[in-house]
Each structure stands twice: as structure tokens, then as C-alpha cells.
């Protein structure tokens, strides 16, 4: 490497950019094609699959919005994902704090209990989970999904947050106690705000798979009232498979919320996911 001439180094540089650029096209082009195709009526898709659309009308999207109850599914996805994130933070953060900052007899056992679930997908317990939800009368309600998502996110979140809590200096607690804070106040006012990056990581790591989840809505939700975007769209696509325009518009609508967030904050996204993966 040290002995290589400027010309061969330039060639290597060009080759690297070429390889990475071609690969980027492999990942991006199908998504770009999906978006372009969504603007075309079906005959135009068949006639002219690669060109720009002849007009940029939003008819296809409006039709999906009307025919697929997309607004309802969007509301359901937002509510269920949001409530799961809040419930997970509200339960995992205090548990992680207790396990990270106090020593008590059951600490090791409890930590192992939480950690044990980190590698096991909750799907493998679907039969008892399904019957439990049925017996609790939670099938066909958002709570079946919220509780499942919160439980499945618990091991990783407790572990991640306990790492963050453990790294805080001990003096903070001592100072808070001297100032007369109760344990709960110390946690809530002093310690919790200091692990905000950890909370953000927990949210990013969990929210994307929840938002995109198809498996649990498929099993838990029967009526339209609480269908999420992936389930609602899967059924809609299946019904309108011959209407390519409608299917492509639906795919773009279904992907748009996350795509927008990703384009706006891909840096935070990637940083959060890396932290989640590396710490885990």
C-alpha cells in the first residue's frame, strides 16, 4: 500500500466507489421504482415500467386511503406502537434502575431472569400467549398487542438501561439523599433524565419492528377496528392483486411514515441501532 503510485491509488479509489455505488443502487432502485410506479395507472405500469410517470396525480393514494380504511390503520399503528413504547419505558427503566443501583438478595436471580429472554423470540410461546389473551378477553383489542410488544422488548431494554444506569457516578445519589430526596424522587428527578440517550436507544430499537410487525396482529386481531397498517395492507393487497396501481400506492402509503422519519434522522436511527446491537 505504502509503495503504490498515485495513479494506482486513484484507480483503487474509483473501484471502491464503483462497488459501493452499484450496491447502493441494488438497495435503493427497487424502492425508487416502487415510489415512481405508485403514481402510474395500471396500464401505464405495464406499458412503461421504468420511465417517469406521465402525470404526478395522487389519485391512487386517495383511492387507497378511501378503500382501505388507511386512516384507521394508521391511527391504530400509531396508538399501539406509542402506547407500547411508553409502557416499556415506564416499566423497564425503574426495573433496570433497581437492578443497576441497589444491592439486594434477589438481584442476581432477577437480572438473570430478565436476561434469559434476550435470545428467545416470544413467538415460540405463541400458543399459550394466544390462549392467555383469549381467556383475558384481550383478543381483538389493542391491549393484546401492547402487552406482547412490551413483554418482548423487556429483556433487551432492562439490560441496555441497566448498562446506562450503572455508568452514572455514585455521588449523584448521595447528593440527592442528603438533599432529602426519597428513593423514588432520586430515580425520577435525578437519574432518569441522565439516561435519556439510553431511553432513546430503547425506543428506536423496539419501535421499528413493532410498527412493521405482522405476526401478532395476524393472530390477535380479527375485526377491522384494531388492524394495524401491515395487517390491513396485507389483506388489502390480497384483495386487489390485479390492480397494480392500487397495490403500489398502498405499499408507498404503508412505508411512508417510517421512510420519512428515516430520511429525516437516519443518523440518529443508525446510531441508536448500533448502540442497541453493540451493547446487546
Amino acid at each position: 500500500m505504502a509503495a503504490s503510485s498515485p495513479a494506482s491509488r486513484l484507480a483503487a479509489r474509483v473501484a471502491i466507489y464503483l462497488v459501493l455505488g452499484v450496491l447502493a443502487a441494488v438497495f435503493l432502485y427497487p424502492v425508487a421504482l416502487m415510489i415512481l410506479t405508485a403514481f402510474k395507472p395500471t396500464p401505464e405500469i405495464f406499458r412503461n415500467p421504468f420511465g417517469l410517470p406521465e402525470s404526478w396525480g395522487l389519485d391512487g393514494f386517495l383511492e387507497v386511503w378511501r378503500r382501505a380504511k388507511f386512516g384507521l390503520y394508521l391511527r391504530n399503528s400509531l396508538l399501539i406502537t406509542g402506547a407500547s413504547a411508553l409502557l416499556l419505558l415506564a416499566t423497564a427503566a425503574p426495573a433496570a434502575y433497581a437492578l443497576a443501583r441497589y444491592s439486594f438478595r434477589l438481584r442476581g436471580v432477577l437480572f438473570l431472569f430478565f436476561l434469559a429472554g434476550i435470545m428467545i423470540p416470544i413467538r415460540l410461546g405463541i400458543l399459550p400467549l394466544y390462549l392467555l389473551m383469549r381467556d383475558l378477553n384481550l383478543l381483538d383489542t389493542p391491549f393484546s398487542l401492547i402487552l406482547t410488544y412490551t413483554a418482548s422488548g423487556m429483556p433487551m431494554s432492562v439490560f441496555l438501561l441497566s448498562v446506562f444506569f450503572r455508568n452514572l457516578p455514585r455521588e449523584l445519589e448521595d447528593a440527592a439523599r442528603i438533599d432529602g430526596c426519597t428513593e423514588t424522587q432520586t430515580f425520577w428527578r435525578i437519574m432518569l433524565p441522565l439516561v435519556r440517550p439510553g431511553l432513546a436507544t430503547v425506543v428506536i430499537v423496539n419501535v421499528v419492528p413493532w410498527w412493521n410487525d405482522f405476526f401478532f396482529p395476524l393472530l390477535f386481531i380479527q375485526t377491522d377496528t384494531w388492524k394495524t397498517i401491515p395487517l390491513g395492507m396485507q389483506i388489502f393487497f390480497g384483495q386487489h392483486l390485479v390492480n397494480w396501481s392500487l397495490v403500489f400506492s398502498g405499499m408507498v402509503l404503508a412505508s411512508l411514515p417510517l421512510l420519512i422519519i428515516y430520511l429525516l434522522m437516519s443518523r440518529q436511527f443508525i446510531a441508536g441501532l448500533t448502540a442497541g446491537a453493540v451493547k446487546g
Binding site: A24, F27, L28, P30, N212, S255
Partner: peptide, 12 residues
């Protein structure tokens, strides 16, 4: 770019 498809739902 490489990560973008990862944000799509597998249904899509």
C-alpha cells in the same frame, strides 16, 4: 442506502 430496505415492513 444499504439500511433503508430494513425499515420497510416485510409485508411491503
Amino acid at each position: 442506502a444499504y439500511f433503508l430496505p430494513h425499515t420497510l415492513s416485510l409485508v411491503v
